[in-house]
């Protein structure tokens, strides 16, 4: 079990660092935050504006698209079968990938938080929220990856999901109707949380919405991940 998870981690480290599309997902938002936070300084702009915005976009995009792409590619290239012949279970595979992707994204999140000027306890809260977000987003992406036949279908599903998760929180700032719907999405709730880091308090509706999101996503994931390997 540990041996398999470790091997998967090792493989991802060797493989994904050479995979430009996935690498870009990992570093794009941290880089943009650093640039925007240092370059742009408009009077009256809310504090941590870019950091918070990009943090939520990072959650909505990076883990989701990378794990969906990784699984879909393994299917397409038939490497998933090879793993099956080595007796790797779906759970081992996904744990290995989750550790890898969530860790990398947390490193990126740290850059975002630090560039946004978070320090001490608020940086800690920020990282906790990011951890929760990356993990949930990973589950969504894994579900999509498992259910898609190849990379094409995976991309065609991840793009709309990614837009909903990453852009709705931003759009809801400008449009109340969107806000009415988008508040039921976990990324919007996380966005509201990071915007109030200084006086953080998880209200009951926030908690209920987040829990509902996780339950639904985890259920979809559990139902689908058994299909990852070809049934005997």
């Amino acid at each position: 079990m540990i041996v398999h998870i470790w091997a998967i981690l090792w493989k991802q480290l060797k493989d994904t660092l050479k995979n430009k599309t996935i690498l870009i997902q990992f570093i794009m938002f941290p880089c943009m935050t650093v640039i925007m936070e240092t370059a742009i300084n408009i009077q009256g702009m809310p504090e941590h504006f870019f950091a918070n915005l990009f943090a939520v976009m990072y959650i909505g995009m990076a883990p989701l698209t990378s794990i969906a792409a990784i699984i879909a590619e393994e299917k397409e290239k038939n490497t998933l079968r090879v793993l099956q012949m080595c007796n790797v279970s779906a759970l081992e595979y996904l744990i290995g990938n989750a550790i890898y992707i969530v860790l990398v994204c947390l490193m990126g999140s740290f850059v975002i938080g630090a560039a946004g000027g978070y320090q001490g306890i608020s940086l800690f809260y920020f990282m906790m929220i990011m951890f929760f977000g990356h993990f949930t987003s990973f589950l969504v992406g894994a579900t999509i990856g498992v259910l898609s036949r190849n990379q094409m279908t995976a991309t065609s599903v991840t793009v709309p999901v990614m837009i909903i998760l990453a852009f709705l929180p931003m759009l809801s700032m400008f449009n109340e109707t969107i806000g009415k719907f988008s508040k039921y999405i976990f990324s919007e709730q996380l966005y509201l949380l990071v915007n109030n880091l200084d006086r953080i308090r998880v209200g009951t509706d926030t908690a209920v919405i987040l829990i509902c999101n996780v339950v639904v996503i985890a259920a979809a994931f559990v139902v689908s991940y058994r299909k990852m390997f070809i049934r005997k």
């Binding site: 493989k11 060797k14 493989d15 050479k18 995979n19 290239k77 038939n78 490497t79 998933l80 079968r81 090879v82």
Partner: peptide
């Protein structure tokens, strides 16, 4: 050895 190999291309 399968007909489509199943090797990791970037490795």
């Amino acid at each position: 050895m399968m007909d489509n190999f199943g090797l990791y291309e970037r490795m």
